[in-house]
Design a binder for these strands. Structure first.
Lengths: 226, 226
DNA sequence: CGTTTGCTTGATGTCATTCAACGCCGGTGG
DNA sequence: CCACCGGCGTTGAATGACATCAAGCAAACG
């Protein structure tokens, strides 16, 4: 544990670090913070890469995933602007990460003291990000283990709408059906069919471009999602 | 975040707590530590209960779970002796917890300063426990989202064998088929059939009591589990 | 000893997957 | 400008894996 924490550059945070004496904005520390722009589907890091940095999204969307040896993929989470991802307890990234859309990131080098002293706010953000990951993963187990295809789509759309909060119930789907399928434990065809069913039932509406959804009956969706 | 951490009694740990000056054994602080013995299937706390305490298992096995409104259950994790469970970031338990077998627990009251000063080791254990939960939940998403029934059983048996490490490949299954099913996203019948298949294939052996499994071909199991 | 509880097994059903075809763009190049 | 093409999404039909329904069995228990 001691070593795992130290490796994560988190030990000073969890232990008795120095008081947060020198507040500095995230952007101002050129030694530990850089920027990076990625095209859609560009890899950020692979599963098993050494975890040298973690990331905060400025614009764009990122997916993290694991692969089985035969190519089956499970997308663990999607990250949106403002989210932090790529935090690890150990030495390696346990998920891979790609840009879903064109993306701009802030890259934080994982130096031993990077998370304390200079920026207590960042340290708190980092801890909050890990806790949010834990909660999301635990919620997602329920979805994957016990919900039907339609229920999964309903849950997913609701969760996304709560994060992007477009006034009027319009939710943008930045990811492909393939990505949705690999997140929800389904095939693309099943995703498509379940979405169509919800549309026919009047719970949602799909503009012709198919990458936006309007939630017409959020209460019914919530009832489905339980 | 600030408030969430404070509510969890974790703020002093993550912030700049007082130095760990007064080492004391877990058991010696009567104000914050008590014990509790439970019968098999007895409830420890319910989903939504206020998270007043967290727990460390002395002997026995515990399951944590969520319920859907129609009764479907997803078991998030099983905890074994030495494991800590019941940690929450917020005010409430997001999972319920029961004893699987007769169980003895150490109960730690979640007082604001309980995790610092008195016992730095406990603080480190607590952080390690949350990280382990995160890793397990993320691994489990892959199982639930993308593995077949047989693969799930193989993964589960291997994971359990790595935790209980009985010499000779004998793994005790303290939980019922029902519990296994609700952890693996299957029905009891599917669990039973998959176990039988693995037995017929010679990968495992089932003594007549059915609550123990001997891993006969761990390599083949690992190949299945990927 | 009868009953209960947990596990297994068989027959049947259902939902999601698989396989295949098609439509709809958006880009490319003749 | 328009034909072609490839990527993405949808839809249909057949298949398959797991669920459901139902029965049976064995150990545990009163």
């Amino acid at each position: 544990m001691q070593t795992a924490l130290a490796a994560a550059g988190l030990a000073p945070v969890f232990g008795r670090g120095a008081p947060a004496a020198l507040p500095a904005s995230l952007a101002s520390d050129a030694r530990t913070v850089t920027r990076r722009t990625l095209a859609a589907n560009e890899e950020i890091y692979a599963e098993g890469d050494r975890a040298m940095s973690f990331y905060k999204i400025v614009v764009g969307v990122v997916r993290t995933y694991k692969l089985l040896s035969d190519g089956r993929r499970q997308i663990g989470a999607f990250y949106l602007p403002g989210d932090i991802f790529g935090l690890e307890c150990g030495e390696e990234h346990r998920f891979g990460a790609d840009a879903v859309t064109e993306t701009r990131l802030v890259v934080h080098r994982r130096e031993p003291r990077a998370l304390t002293g200079d920026d207590g706010n960042l340290a708190r953000e980092v801890v909050a990000a890990m806790m949010r990951d834990l909660e999301r993963a635990q919620e997602h187990m329920m979805l994957l283990g016990r919900q039907s295809a339609r229920e999964r789509i309903a849950s997913f759309l609701l969760a996304l709408s709560e994060r992007t909060a477009d006034a009027g119930g319009a939710v943008c789907l930045p990811m492909s059906r393939n990505d949705m399928a690999d997140h929800l434990g389904l095939t693309i065809e099943s995703v498509s069919r379940a979405v169509t069913q919800l549309e026919r039932a009047g719970l949602i509406e799909l503009p012709p471009n198919r990458r936006t959804v309007i939630l017409r009956n959020a209460a019914a969706l919530r009832h489905l999602a339980d």
